[in-house]
Design a binder for these strands. Structure first.
Length: 494
RNA sequence: GUCCCCAUCGUCUAGUCAGGUCCAGGACACCGGCCUUUCACGCCGGCAACACCGGUUCAAAUCCGGUUGGGGACGCCA
């Protein structure tokens, strides 16, 4: 069996978006499943639009997602000679010809055809020029492009698609497409094929938007006398209006970088992306890398375009709810030490990382993460919603402040009373803190909930959280006593 | 205008190739309940779909034809 070699060939004209990431992911899965190779190839032949930042962004994005590649990054522009040679070969073998029609003429014809609702294909003006006519035009230094000479015959070009089955298209319906610009630079259709032949690509997994390219490229493979790879066209990802998602019209929400900044778990995003247009045929939806590699097949890629379900301006569902839910699932079930690594990165950025979390306080750090992670959505929440556990500069949210503190002005004296009793506890644990709290409530003849919720708000700034006495233990006696003794400022604004 | 692809709950989808076990299963979201000092988690329950028409057949989500709808492509972009 021949080696499986796949590629991810982004054009560096913007950041890595989720559609591109999904393409990369599926190629990666196929490579890993077959012990094959994934080649990263930057298709930068469009010099005007290609940028360095974009290249860096793509590489960062893939690295963050954990999609490693085995060869490259190669740069298409480094192989211009190959492309030019191939074009010459096609010209020499009669598979291509020079076309002297000017861009202006063609644009005009195309517009006219569009306007008249007529076929817009190239009319073949230069297809049958004699060698003499060509020589004459060249003598006059008329610029020319090179067009591929699509066989004029009955029948159809066909290829087997792993997802869609047999795809056919009449030769008749394919125009003589341009493969080299008048400035001598070969175009995508050709470069892409030449590179794939050189890189010995065995499977081409890409979006359905490439289907019309594929039929033309099959012709190129045949003309270049090269084996045709296996094709698998995956469905596109659309927005709620059924429009192809793009960086241009959808902005940051479709950028991989956005999810990184929001504190998503990289593999959660991969897991979600895999499910968009692919499924294992079972009810399983959560997969480890190994599991996904194991069960992934090209045949189970869907045929139907899928909708990336997000509504602009919805704060709760700022991206596809299913993606959020998968991320939450990982957040609360993943190995706590792996989670700690991700949180560490956030904390370092937020400047609330304590080196002891890797040392003396390691155990405490992990236990605390585990205690609070159930309520969080992204790793960012540890430094924001969960800030009170790790730093003293947490904010007390308005809603709980009003409900649990301001509503009961006597807490101003009650909470310090509680602090006083906590301070003298020899063993500051769940049981002792709970009985202490309940005893005080009884003495004061108030519901324990008033003290408990007041404490929660004062100590964590939050309306909700873990069991109160777990919180006390997590915070530790010293912090609890300090914070409960310093609550006057909470009443300042009132 | 031409060509190509597609069509199951709001969304992601199973089931379609080998028609009956599907008055259509799962997940997310939503609603209700349990749990609970709070909020989550968890658990239980609910709502909700085979685009339409015709054909084949004892039997169609599944096969065939058409209609409609959606998407993609039609660049000297990639």
């Amino acid at each position: 069996m021949t080696e499986v070699r796949v590629r991810f060939p982004p054009s560096p004209t913007g950041y890595l978006h989720i559609g591109g990431a999904r393409t990369a992911l599926l190629n990666w899965l196929w490579a890993r499943k077959n012990n094959g190779k994934l080649i990263l190839r930057i298709e930068d032949t469009d010099a005007e639009r290609s940028t360095e930042e974009s290249i860096a962004g793509i590489i960062d994005g893939m690295t963050w997602l954990g999609l490693d590649w085995d060869e490259g990054p190669y740069f298409q522009t480094d192989f211009s000679d190959d492309h030019t040679k191939a074009a010459k070969k096609l010209l020499a073998s009669g598979h291509a010809y020079k076309c002297f029609c000017t861009k202006e003429e063609l644009d005009q014809k195309r517009e006219a055809a569009m306007a008249a609702k007529k076929d817009v294909r190239y009319d073949g003006t230069c297809r049958d020029l004699t060698p003499e006519q060509v020589a004459e035009k060249e003598a006059q230094v008329i610029p020319s492009v090179i067009r591929f000479k699509v066989p004029q015959k009955e029948g159809k070009v066909a290829y087997e698609d792993k997802v869609l089955g047999t795809i056919e298209r009449s030769y008749d319906d394919i125009e003589d497409f341009v493969i080299v610009r008048s400035n001598g630079k070969p175009l995508y259709l050709l470069c892409n094929v030449v590179d794939d032949i050189r890189d010995r690509i065995s499977h081409i997994i890409r979006g359905q938007d490439h289907m019309s390219n594929t039929t033309r490229q099959v012709l190129l493979y045949q003309a270049l006398d090269a084996p045709i790879p296996v094709f698998a066209h995956m469905p596109l990802t659309l927005d709620l209006q059924k429009r192809k998602i793009s960086k241009r019209s959808h902005g940051e929400i479709v950028a991989v970088q956005f999810y990184r900044e929001k504190g998503f778990i990289p593999w959660a995003l991969c897991n979600f992306l895999a499910l968009l247009g692919w499924n294992p045929g079972t009810d399983q939806e959560i997969f480890s890398r190994e599991e996904l590699i194991e069960v992934f097949t090209l045949e189970r890629i869907g045929k139907v375009n899928s909708v990336f379900n997000y509504q602009k301006g919805n704060a709760k569902f700022f991206t596809d709810p299913k993606l959020i839910s998968i991320n939450e699932h990982y957040l609360r079930t993943m190995d706590i030490t792996e989670l700690a690594e991700l949180v560490k990165q956030d904390f370092e950025e937020q400047d609330i990382w304590d080196k002891a979390y890797d040392g003396d306080k390691r155990e405490w750090f992990l236990t605390t993460l585990d205690l609070i992670r159930d309520r969080f959505h992204t790793t960012r929440d540890f430094a924001t919603l969960g800030r009170a556990y790790f730093a003293d500069d947490y904010t007390v949210e308005a809603k709980p402040l009003k409900k649990n503190i301001l509503k009961h002005p006597d807490l101003k004296t009650w909470l310090p009373m509680l602090a006083e009793r906590f301070a003298v506890l020899d063993d500051f644990n769940k049981e002792t803190t709970e009985s202490t709290s309940r005893e005080l409530a009884e003495e004061l003849d108030i519901k324990p909930g008033i003290l408990i919720n007041g404490m929660r708000t004062a100590l964590t700034g939050q309306l909700a959280g873990p069991g109160m006495f777990d919180i006390l233990v997590a915070l530790g006696k010293e912090r609890v006593v300090n914070r409960l003794n310093n609550i006057d400022h909470l009443y300042d604004g009132a």
